[in-house]
Simulated scan of single mutants.
Amino acid sequence: MDAIYFDLDGTLTDPKPGITRSIQYALQRLDHPTMPTEDELTWCIGPPLRASFVRLLGAETSADLAVTYYRERFSDVGLYENGVYDGIGEVLTSLCASGHRLFVATSKPHVFAERIIDHFGLRDHFERVFGSELDGTRVDKSHLLEYALKQASVDPAKTLMIGDRSHDMVGAKNNGMKGIGVLYGYGSRDELLEAGAHHVCATPGAVLGCIA
């Protein structure tokens, strides 16, 4: 493979505390009648945030305001309630040494993704970080990867997408890429395989064995 795109949340880093607490903060600001626990909100990790708020709130109403409240906390605090998965650094170092071009492709706004990549010292591994815009542009993984492939001038047939959720695999399939699902994040084996994953890996290190 010439180029490899990595999802961020649930693939490179474990963002659970920051994301779930920021969602709770937004729900509190909206005086939501019930408060899900952090564990009950793990399904929100990975998919586009606004869609998750629509589901949580039961309607489109207030979803945009919820995203605004979420970002109030996430941009200053939640961003750093995060951690790189054990073994990721070694995997990235090995792939770079093998001559692969590495990129980040996340539905998270790129302004946040860039800060996370820098904060955890991952910048040197990646040629570029691709994410959505704050207005929701390219939040859909298929659209994001279409843009990212064109920007990097790579052949989709020689490119991998590595992620932990179904939309990572669907985005890869829709763009003629192969997808590798990781099980240490927030998606299940069934979710990933049903979405078209070519391989599923239980650990970061296992990913290396799936890459030619």
Rank of each mutant, 00 (worst) to 15 (best):
K150G: 14
L12H: 01
Y147M: 09
M1K: 01
G176T: 06
N175Y: 06
G83A: 15
D118R: 03
G18E: 02
T106D: 02
E40A: 15
V154A: 14
Y25G: 06
D164P: 01
R189H: 15
L122K: 04
T106N: 04
G163A: 08
G136R: 04
E194S: 11
Y5A: 00
P47Y: 08
R123M: 00
N82H: 09
I116S: 07
A212Q: 12
M169L: 15
T159I: 06
K173E: 06
N174S: 02
G89S: 09
L149V: 15
S153F: 15
D164G: 03
T13P: 00
R165Q: 03
D190C: 06
E90F: 03
L145Q: 06
T13L: 03
T20A: 03
K158E: 11
A197G: 03
K178R: 14
V182D: 09
L183F: 14
D2Y: 00
L149C: 15
P156G: 08
A3E: 00
V91A: 07
S132D: 05
Y147S: 05
D14R: 08
V111S: 10
V54W: 04
A51Y: 12
Y184I: 11
G46R: 07
R71I: 14
E38P: 13
G209S: 13
D118A: 10
R71E: 08
L95R: 05
G179S: 04
G179A: 13
D124S: 10
I162V: 13
R115P: 03
H125T: 01
V77N: 12
S166P: 00
E38Q: 15
A152P: 15
G136I: 13
L192P: 02
F126M: 07
V111R: 11
D140M: 12
G185T: 09
Q151G: 07
F53H: 07
V182T: 11
F112K: 10
F74H: 09
V111W: 04
G18Q: 02
Y147W: 10
F126G: 04
L144A: 08
G78Y: 08
G187M: 11
L79K: 14
G89R: 12
L160E: 04
F74D: 03
Q151P: 00
Y5S: 00
H100E: 03
D140L: 14
G10P: 00
M177T: 02
R71P: 13
Q28E: 09
G187N: 13
Y85S: 12
G46N: 11
Q151A: 15
A202I: 02
D31M: 04
L65T: 11
I116M: 13
V84W: 11
V154F: 07
L65N: 00
V200C: 14
Y85Q: 13
Q24W: 10
T68F: 00
K141A: 10
K16N: 03
L12V: 11
P17A: 09
R123E: 01
F53W: 06
E38S: 15
L208C: 01
S142H: 13
I88C: 08
G209L: 07
H110P: 02
C210L: 05
A97R: 12
I23P: 01
